[in-house]
Amino acid sequence: MPRTMLETRNLVKRYNGFTAVDDLSFEVYDGDIFGLLGPNGAGKTTAIRTIMDIFKPDEGTIRVLGEPPGVVRRRIGYLPEERGLYRDLKVLDVLVYLAELKGRPRSVAREQALAWLERVELSDWARRKVRDLSRGMQQKLQFVASVVHDPQLLILDEPFQGLDPINVDLLKGLIRELHRDGKTVMLSAHQMNLVEALCDRILLIDDGKAVLYGSLDEIKRRHSPGTVRLRTSAALEPLPGVARVEQRDDIYTLTLEGISPQDLLTTLVEKKIPVDVFEVATAPLEDIFITVVKERDNA
């Protein structure tokens, strides 16, 4: 069982009688890239700010790296949703200051800042003022500011917001690199395709409540139980338990009714139908998200 890096139990946060986070419990394990998903206003940022000790919870408990929030600030990297940097300061000075606040000695902070600037190809801008940087460069710098002190746990609130496709790719690459280096990452997002591409485990929240939680593969399987995709050169005859067949070239998508994918596979073997590819089809996360949220709204 991997080590728990972050844990919330029955977390509740209210504003003026409005419950922004409602009884939220989840865990982020060591080595995860964990996605916190939800539509705008679902409570993602409030949950993150509570975890970061910027807000105090009204109810529930939080443990970050085994400690109450606020105790281990220097081991966490945080990219807030509302972001900005000191525009009148030099790039290197900003990074050194922020790393110093995270407990890095000045000389170490400087070394790490220079190394990160090299990594994101901003070395030539180290002594320029932040306001001289292009928007894309500032976004890279913003990310570097959250990781410059070499944190164990990285919490990114809507990291892809406002990024152009090139910078989205760059950021995805950096997150994967950090993950490979052994960092645990928790990110919030509403772009499902990015989450699908990056995350191992997710928590989907809506109206402050947990709607889906667990391994991404498992969730996708759970929400696409009756669909199978297969590739065959043979013409498919009607099969028992198959309600609907869609064909595109030699790929068939079968909707099952009353049988499992395993039952279908057995039937195909019995009927000696040649199968090149057989897979349980999973719905895109976006479809699952829309279905689940609509079901909740209708309930």
Partner: peptide, 8 residues
């Protein structure tokens, strides 16, 4: 920039 500072 405030929120970054308050995380530290």
């Amino acid at each position: 920039v405030m929120e970054i500072i308050l995380s530290s």
